[in-house]
Computed example of a mutant assay.
Amino acid sequence: MADSTKGDTDVQDLGLLSSALIALIAGLVIHSFIIGVNVTDWWKGRSVTPVDHIVTCLGISRMCAQCANILYLFIYPLFQGSLHSRITLLKEISYDFLIYANIWLTSLLSIVYCLKISNFHTRLFLYLRGMIVHRTVYLIGAAVLLSAVNSLISLLLAIPKVSNSETYHTTMANLMTNCSYIKTAYHHAIGISFPLLSYYISSVLLFTSLYHHTTKMKMSSNLSINLETYYSVMKFISITFIYNTVYFIWYICCMFYYYAYCVSPDWLYIVLDFLPVLHSSYLIYKTAKLRSQMSKVLQSVTDFLFQRKDTETRENIGVVAL
Rank of each mutant, 00 (worst) to 15 (best):
S180A: 14
V55C: 12
T184G: 04
L83M: 11
Y211C: 14
M219Y: 14
Q299R: 11
Y95I: 03
G59C: 06
S193N: 03
D13E: 07
I192M: 07
V51G: 05
V137N: 14
F207G: 12
P77A: 08
Y72P: 07
F236G: 10
E92H: 15
C262H: 08
N119V: 08
V149I: 14
A26N: 01
K44A: 09
W104E: 00
S198N: 09
C64V: 01
L275R: 10
V112G: 04
L16G: 12
L83D: 12
S19L: 00
W42K: 15
P276Y: 04
L205Q: 05
F33T: 01
S292I: 04
L78C: 13
V263S: 12
S264V: 06
I70H: 11
Y199C: 08
T229F: 06
I201C: 15
S82L: 03
L109G: 01
Y186P: 06
C254E: 14
S163K: 14
L196N: 07
D3K: 08
S232Y: 00
C67E: 13
Q12N: 08
V319R: 09
V277N: 02
F248R: 15
T215K: 15
S209L: 15
D8Y: 12
C114A: 08
Q299L: 11
A288T: 05
W267N: 02
K309Q: 04
K183F: 09
S238L: 13
R62Y: 15
T88E: 11
L90K: 04
T56Q: 12
Y282W: 08
H213P: 06
K6N: 11
T245P: 08
S281K: 06
L73W: 05
H31W: 04
K91F: 15
L175Q: 04
L223Q: 03
P77M: 06
L71S: 15
I192W: 05
P195H: 03
S154R: 13
L146F: 13
S151H: 10
T215W: 11
D273K: 00
I201R: 13
V11S: 12
S232W: 01
Y257N: 10
Y95D: 12
F207A: 08
Y100C: 07
G81Y: 06
P77V: 04
L175R: 15
Y76N: 11
V162M: 12
T311E: 08
M131W: 14
R135V: 00
R46H: 13
I30G: 03
V162C: 05
V319G: 02
L196G: 06
A288S: 07
T240P: 06
K183T: 12
L152F: 10
H121V: 10
I159T: 13
R135S: 04
L146T: 00
A2G: 06
